[in-house]
Design a protein around this nucleic acid. Sequence first.
RNA 1: CGGAGUGUAGCGCAGUCUGGUUAGCGCACCUGGUUUGGGACCAGGGGGUCGAAGGUUCGAAUCCUUUCACUCCGACCA
Length: 563
Amino acid sequence: MRFSTLFAPTTKEAPKDAILPSHIYLVRGGFVSQIGSGIYNFLPLGKMVLDKIKTVVKEEMDKSSAQETQLGFVTPSELWKESGRYHKFGKELLRFTDRKENEFVLGPTHEEAMVDLVRSRVKSYKQLPLHLYQINTKFRDEARPRYGLLRGREFLMKDGYSFHEDSQDLEREFIQMEKTYGQILDRLGLEYRVVEADSGAIGGSGSKELMVLADNGEDDIVVCDSCDYAANIEAAKRAGKPIDTQNLEMSAGDFHTPDVTTIDALSVFFKVDSTSTVKAVVKKAIYEESEELVIFFICGDSELQETKAQSLCQAIELVDVDAETLKQKGIVAGFIGPEIKDVTCFVDVELKDRENLICGANKVDYHTVGYSFKDKDFTFADLITVEEDDTCSCCGGILKITKGIEVGHIFQLGDTYSKALNATFLDRNGKAQPYVMGTYGIGVSRLVAVVIEQHHDEKGCLWTPETSPFALTIIVSNIKDEAQRTFAESLYAQLKAVGMNVLLDDRGERFGFKMKDFELLGFPKAVIVGKGLVEGEVQIVDRKTLEKQTVSKDEIFQKLMDK
RNA sequence: CGGAGUGUAGCGCAGUCUGGUUAGCGCACCUGGUUUGGGACCAGGGGGUCGAAGGUUCGAAUCCUUUCACUCCGACCA
């Protein structure tokens, strides 16, 4: 490819709203351009990267014996109504009607469509397992798209769906996919962690996310400093803290505690550590057809993890409650205790069997001292947010919190969708069973940005070998210099002849201009054909280190071949 | 969805408060010339329904109303 004919409009200035390196450099380098909120065009260079990533994903998927398909981007609403997600999915699902007033959605994911494709055609266990995938455009009408390609509304995703006769076989595929995804990210040159995740609205058991480590990640992930444990903050567990069995120097009972409404004030008032107090968090749980108040009790020094809380009460949403609502329900804010009547309560599992605690007495200005959860009939569950330096529940190591960008998510779905869509096969006993399913996603267009988030410097992009649009740029310092031009042309022809993906910068620009573009665009290396040529010398520049190495013009071809 | 902003040339912005020449600047672009190892210089040039609609006015980028788009903070986010 000749740079003089390449459509790669580079700019010196970044768009004003670009904050992240990936956003800035991808736009400045002419890889992508925004056309609408959360919608991006891929220009030739961006498309090359996208295709490279697609190819890696496809090759690894095919190697794992999944088969590629391509489903309609536009899906009839009927299917979504059948699975029940038409209403559940919310406003992110873009719905519209055609000229005949038939309803459709733009596919944000394709469980329904894929199950529909398979259900009428796979009727026997002999046809299982089956894993079908596609690399296709998705649309999610995000409330607030941002960060360039990282959080677009329209994006390219590889989504795969596997069908099995039982959960053992699903598990085998799940492990296989974790391995496959790892191979994909390794090839792309990304540093990542596989973390345990919340399964969210999609349902199902066992779910893991593949997180690429990057400072600008949107997700907090918890990693152990001494074992393999890693989890999304939404799902992370910790070992229970050692209980400080301090004896409260007062007898049990209700104490007058005027205006003591916070945990801090409470521990000061009684001169105890906050680990001896019980915190009550009230939320309104929103369900499809109803709503109710729910109270979560956790240890005073902990924070509620809302995702855990939400999935525990199976609500669509948890929202904060204002003081007025509490009053109407007869709940006294600041003095809420577990012995409250007529409200759904959940208690963190770390409080199970704890004794000698201080909690609200459910009346204004009173707290109960010496409260015990022993033998109490509550629903105990994991409710707390893991914090930095907590103890790992697997090995006793120290947990650290770091930032990650979710690039893949794999689920053991089970039969949620096959049941809902009445998709069954005949098992070995001739009995109809719903398929046991897995679903696996990987954000292909997001990966374009993720590579840059992890690989860039203050000058521009640093594409990894498998993602770079070109392996090499030949920079002709002065295109009007006949000797330079001739030599560069012949080297270009030679390298192309052996199949190297090489770009010849033959533009009539000055040296500095072309170097800046090289640095911005981030191809792994460049050969400079310049004033050294009269001495028979050219230079190789490494993009990462920016080191220049002088090489004889007669040896340059071989040198490039050796690497 | 709540809060806050911004829309003027391809990009980045000034002008709007206080209405009044031909709407301006930098980058980019075109022509000619000089330059050619770190985003060159000189000269000339092209490019605008001032987001849209309506209103006020002798006169609107500027004031008023409506509307659309985009962005930021937050909530949300398989």
